[in-house]
Design a binder for these strands. Structure first.
Lengths: 154, 154
DNA sequence: GAGAAATAATCAGTGCCCTGAGTAATTCGG
DNA sequence: CCGAATTACTCAGGGCACTGATTATTTCTC
């Protein structure tokens, strides 16, 4: 008899939040293009010609995941991928016409979805919401140095 | 030139938050048992003998995902799965000795991890954090009725 | 210039997450 | 009682996310 209350566990809350977002995205934005895919399109609208690794860095996707996402976008004809002539290791990415159009179309819908998603919060609360989540995420990212985990006895 | 700022997109933030949590969980809690797996163990500590569907409901996992998670926990010998003699459709779940021990061990580590994870926030902010995320998630869950999406007319 | 270190991408493997379709068992309606 | 609807679970398939190992290319160092 030592069950805990998951509703006080940030990880559990974070997962539920993302699930909720996933559902809303599917109904209000697109069933074809996912949120991470849109993030990649967006990064390439901002900075055309980025290499794969940097795009991943911009949108917060690791090397394996970004490779898969890009492969899908490429298969759908939303972006082109060419070897960097100056550095044969890199793959340079650029949106196609269709990719740009898709990004533009989804941008509108995404804004609408965000409004609905955040509707339960007041304007001030929305600011708080972003601030708190960002601070927690940033801090945890900064901890990516296992050094001595489980030291306990802390 | 119409790239948006992803840091103002709750979905993007939610994904980053979960990633950050995933990383911290891996280093501070367990590399074997994942957070969703712990949630299932926890649900069965609270209510032994639940059926699979209900456990999924308790922890927020759909029918397919809960089946996979339970299959893994069962393979590891952390829970037993038996057909309900009273209703042959149901699979009743119960933790093994090892499952209970694992839950107890991880409970301590999870509490420690949550402290580290939330450390960047003051006590009041932590309360806000939970409140805001919960309200947004709950509201979005309540929206799971597509009825007439994209009404916009925008 | 050749070997070593570093870097970008790929591949294999594990796990989470969802939908739609299919199967087995129970319950409901006539 | 028997067929129809419902319910619990399974299966197939697509996508996200991470790690560790491998490959190709560039850069660093002697």
């Amino acid at each position: 008899m030592a069950a805990v209350d998951l509703s006080s566990h940030p990880g559990h809350l974070a997962r539920r939040l993302q699930q909720a977002h996933y559902l809303l995205w599917n109904t209000m934005v697109s069933e074809e293009i996912t949120s991470p895919q849109f993030a990649v399109l967006n990064a390439l609208v901002a900075e055309p010609g980025l290499d794969q690794r940097t795009v991943g860095e911009r949108v917060g996707l690791d090397r394996s995941t970004i490779a898969e996402v890009i492969s899908r976008l490429s298969r759908r004809g939303l972006l082109d991928k060419v070897r960097d002539p100056a550095d044969g290791r890199r793959a340079l990415l650029r949106l196609t016409e269709d990719g740009v159009r898709t990004h533009r179309r989804l941008t509108v819908r995404t804004a609408r979805m965000n409004q609905v998603f955040l509707a339960p919060l007041s304007a001030e609360e929305q600011v708080q919401f972003f601030d708190l989540i960002r601070r927690v995420s940033d801090a945890a990212e900064g901890l990516r140095n296992p050094a001595e985990p489980l030291v306990g006895q802390g």
